[in-house]
Write a protein that binds this DNA or RNA. Structure first.
Length: 210
DNA sequence: GCGACAG
DNA sequence: ATCTTGTCGC
């Protein structure tokens, strides 16, 4: 197994490859949601669900179950979840143009969360959507869907707390790779018409548990 | 130093 | 994450 030190060094090595300047696609035909489910003895299930962006209909889905190769270490989340997710991605028959990841992107202690890592490895535009925010500080956004407030870490804006439903706890959006924060948030809002979490992530979450 | 810590 | 009891809001 890779050591903690080696994993951190790998993040530092790959971080310069992240593209935060590309505004990213305004519209895509296919968008994928990714999530990992956990079973008993260190078993992880990587799930990828490709949706037709216009209708949110499922176009393709793959789940791969394997032995976890890295423990859960805050800040090194990707080293646990990336292997099963990449294995699932390789089996897709419909190519997504945008990936929505469950977790952090830029909003990460070393500015290199799972979404950035997956973006660099696949070359695809990626967005990180987390359910909790332990990185940086942010004000509470207004109660209406669409409201947001910046997440600030060491003086830098690294993401947004974005309200996807009226009066419901926001999600925490950050850039992964090849997409602007504005564009990432507009995609997340469009992909979350009925629930707090974007539909691709909900579908992947469901698949990862089965 | 101690605790907290995406999932 | 997952498990699980109890509570809350509609």
């Amino acid at each position: 197994m890779m050591s903690i030190e080696e994993a951190e060094a790998e993040q530092e090595r790959l971080r310069p490859l992240v593209d935060l300047a590309d505004p990213g696609p305004e519209r895509v035909e296919y968008v994928a949601g990714l999530d990992v489910g956990y079973a008993g003895d260190d078993e992880v299930t990587g799930a990828v669900v490709v949706l037709r962006a216009a209708t949110l209909e499922i176009a393709d889905q793959v789940a791969v179950r394997q032995r976890a190769s890295f423990p859960y270490v805050p800040g090194l989340f990707a080293f646990r979840e990336l292997p099963p997710l990449l294995a699932a991605m390789e089996k897709l028959t419909v190519a997504p143009e945008l990936l929505v990841c469950d977790g952090y992107g830029l909003a990460h202690p070393r500015r290199f969360g799972l979404a950035c890592h997956l973006g660099v490895l696949t070359g695809l535009p990626t967005i990180g959507v987390a359910k909790t925010a332990f990185v940086g500080r942010h004000d509470e956004p207004a109660a209406e869907r669409g409201s947001w407030s910046p997440i600030v870490l060491d003086g830098d804006v690294v993401g947004r707390a974005l309200r996807t439903r009226d009066g419901v706890k926001p999600v925490y959006v950050s850039q992964g790779h090849r997409i602007s924060l504005d564009n990432a948030c507009s995609h997340v809002l469009r992909l979350s018409p009925g629930f707090r979490l974007p539909e691709p992530i909900r579908m992947a979450d469901r698949l990862s548990r089965s």
